[in-house]
Design a protein around this nucleic acid. Sequence first.
DNA 1: AAAAAAT
Length: 479
Amino acid sequence: MATDSWALAVDEQEAAAESLSNLHLKEEKIRPDANGAVVKTNANEEKTDEEEKEDRAAQSLLNKLIRSNLVDNTNQVEVLQRDPNSPLYSVKSFEELRLKPQLLQGVYAMGFNRPSKIQENALPLMLAEPSQNLIAQSQSGTGKTAAFVLAMLSQVEPANRYPQCLCLSPTYELALQTGKVIEQMGKFYPELKLAYAVRGNKLERGQKISEQIVIGTPGTVLDWCSKLKFIDPKKIKVFVLDEADVMIATQGHQDQSIRIQRMLPRNCQMLLFSATFEDSVWKFAQKVVPDPNIIKLKREEETLDTIKQYYVLCSNRDEKFQALCNLYGAITIAQAMIFCHTRKTASWLAAELSKEGHQVALLSGEMMVEQRAAVIERFRKGKEKVLVTTNVCARGIDVEQVSVVINFDLPVDKDGNPDNETYLHRIGRTGRFGKRGLAVNMVDSKHSMSILSRIQEHFNKKIERLDTDDLDEIEKIAN
DNA sequence: AAAAAAT
């Protein structure tokens, strides 16, 4: 599909998407050989250096976005079927799914050879006829995004020029990231288009959306479905909630998500995906999703094993800042994310670090969407090594080179209690794909020390003290 | 407290 036919939020994405789509301007034939390995052949073998360079650039951007081809047989999968009498069904290859050829082509073009563990189990359930609902929990980096994107693409009828699949993301940045995966995997459908229902993407009044798939954030999607009537919700066949626990938690986007859900037809397929589901949210999920199939992939301990966790003891915010400055040299060996509790602290911290001569980027919800898109793009490309941010980037954002996460403020909920889910999501920005990661928690009071202890108890994992005056130790950790 | 909104 042509890049310019997509409804994109801002020019920044257009440029990025264009560099991705250049990858496949040439006709490509993809087929598995006798051993199941994928063989790619270009119809036109001749490529200029310039094209090769573009290919490599696009591929590396892609690799940063998508790494779900992880096959890890140590994972324990728990499957609970809606109909316990139907046979338990899982696939070991994408061929077994009988996907449309254009879709299979898209899957292989992304470099996926075999389904990941979650995909093996979730795909047959999601593709079964008549359609069934699914609640799936599995760790970041295990292929959730590709799984539900595949489910949407296999149900869509490109000939019908109206939205049929709807996907909700909790933040603007995540919607863009997931959108790129949809574009990539669906690129061999010539007629297929994707619309971004995100802040700042304004359309003319009174028109209807012709794009077959819509990805967006809850506020805009709700407007498009109800007040503005850009989308006819009654025609939606597949409804996906990414990071589903925040989307339906009282403290998250519950109101809007549920209002959208109520507009959908009774037989609409509902797919809920997240890495974490806190108990009460899990119960609520099963209440709002009729007759759900359930898949859980246990991997929590493993993730925490690949991430070294430390804390730095300080007595106030300025000491935290000093400690952070001591760490700066070590954390910039690769890329780092620094999380603050409020937008105000984040912008203060970014400014202070800049004054000290450290280059940092700032990303928070108070910035304009164009600016946010530009910053996340620079961070993805590695042009920015350190990102100071809020919980807006706690979930889903996938940048491969991030090896350090710093909690300048520990994650707490509105009552000031430890927010274990957010903690796991934040430190999960590093140590992805089985890589080693480092998490440093800044403690500045008795109160925050007690929050850290409770987080430590919850995960039953020792968080060791780190002395930032001891540079040898810092060097040791960073390497 | 953050995020999400064409209010």
